[in-house]
Amino acid sequence: MEKGGLSDRQLYRLRDDGAIEAVGRGLFRRTDADLLADIDLLEIARRAPLATVCLTSALA
């Protein structure tokens, strides 16, 4: 979390205040952001950036 510029406390405070929400383990998004992408695909891309996703990515 320090890599993103936030301490654990700051991150959890934002989550508890409703400014961000957890979409996966260690992956958060702002609650006021327009979501134009599939959250599952974003989580996969974050966790395994060199992976190839079949079928689901083809449909997207």
Rank of each mutant, 00 (worst) to 15 (best):
residue 1 M to L: 09
residue 1 M to A: 12
residue 1 M to N: 11
residue 1 M to Y: 12
residue 3 K to I: 10
residue 4 G to E: 11
residue 4 G to Y: 13
residue 4 G to C: 13
residue 4 G to S: 14
residue 5 G to A: 06
residue 5 G to K: 05
residue 5 G to T: 07
residue 5 G to S: 05
residue 6 L to D: 03
residue 6 L to W: 14
residue 6 L to E: 06
residue 6 L to P: 01
residue 7 S to K: 11
residue 7 S to N: 14
residue 8 D to Q: 13
residue 8 D to V: 13
residue 9 R to M: 07
residue 9 R to P: 00
residue 10 Q to R: 13
residue 10 Q to P: 04
residue 10 Q to C: 10
residue 11 L to Y: 04
residue 11 L to H: 01
residue 11 L to E: 02
residue 11 L to I: 08
residue 12 Y to S: 08
residue 12 Y to D: 06
residue 13 R to Y: 09
residue 13 R to Q: 14
residue 13 R to N: 15
residue 13 R to K: 14
residue 14 L to G: 03
residue 15 R to T: 07
residue 15 R to S: 07
residue 16 D to Q: 11
residue 16 D to S: 13
residue 16 D to M: 08
residue 17 D to V: 06
residue 17 D to Q: 14
residue 17 D to L: 09
residue 18 G to T: 10
residue 18 G to F: 10
residue 18 G to C: 05
residue 19 A to I: 09
residue 19 A to W: 00
residue 19 A to D: 10
residue 19 A to S: 11
residue 20 I to L: 05
residue 21 E to H: 01
residue 22 A to L: 05
residue 22 A to D: 04
residue 23 V to G: 01
residue 24 G to M: 01
residue 25 R to P: 01
residue 25 R to S: 07
residue 25 R to V: 08
residue 26 G to V: 05
residue 26 G to P: 03
residue 26 G to T: 05
residue 27 L to M: 12
residue 27 L to W: 07
residue 27 L to S: 02
residue 28 F to H: 08
residue 28 F to S: 01
residue 28 F to W: 15
residue 28 F to L: 05
residue 29 R to V: 09
residue 29 R to W: 08
residue 30 R to C: 03
residue 30 R to S: 05
residue 31 T to R: 06
residue 31 T to G: 01
residue 32 D to I: 06
residue 32 D to P: 00
residue 32 D to K: 11
residue 33 A to S: 12
residue 33 A to T: 04
residue 33 A to M: 05
residue 33 A to Q: 10
residue 34 D to F: 01
residue 34 D to E: 15
residue 35 L to M: 10
residue 35 L to I: 10
residue 35 L to A: 08
residue 36 L to A: 05
residue 37 A to E: 13
residue 38 D to N: 14
residue 38 D to F: 04
residue 39 I to K: 04
residue 39 I to E: 15
residue 39 I to G: 00
residue 39 I to V: 14
residue 40 D to R: 11
residue 40 D to E: 13
residue 41 L to D: 04
residue 41 L to V: 04
residue 41 L to Y: 03
residue 42 L to E: 13
residue 42 L to N: 03
residue 42 L to F: 01
residue 43 E to F: 07
residue 44 I to S: 06
residue 44 I to G: 00
residue 45 A to M: 11
residue 45 A to I: 04
residue 45 A to E: 11
residue 46 R to L: 07
residue 46 R to M: 06
residue 46 R to P: 00
residue 47 R to T: 14
residue 47 R to L: 15
residue 48 A to Y: 10
residue 48 A to L: 05
residue 49 P to L: 04
residue 49 P to Q: 02
residue 49 P to R: 02
residue 51 A to M: 08
residue 51 A to F: 10
residue 52 T to K: 14
residue 52 T to Q: 11
residue 52 T to S: 12
residue 52 T to E: 11
residue 52 T to G: 04
residue 52 T to Y: 07
residue 53 V to D: 05
residue 53 V to Y: 10
residue 53 V to Q: 07
residue 54 C to G: 09
residue 54 C to Y: 12
residue 54 C to A: 13
residue 55 L to F: 15
residue 55 L to M: 08
residue 56 T to H: 12
residue 56 T to E: 14
residue 56 T to R: 15
residue 57 S to R: 09
residue 59 L to N: 02
residue 60 A to K: 07
residue 60 A to I: 02
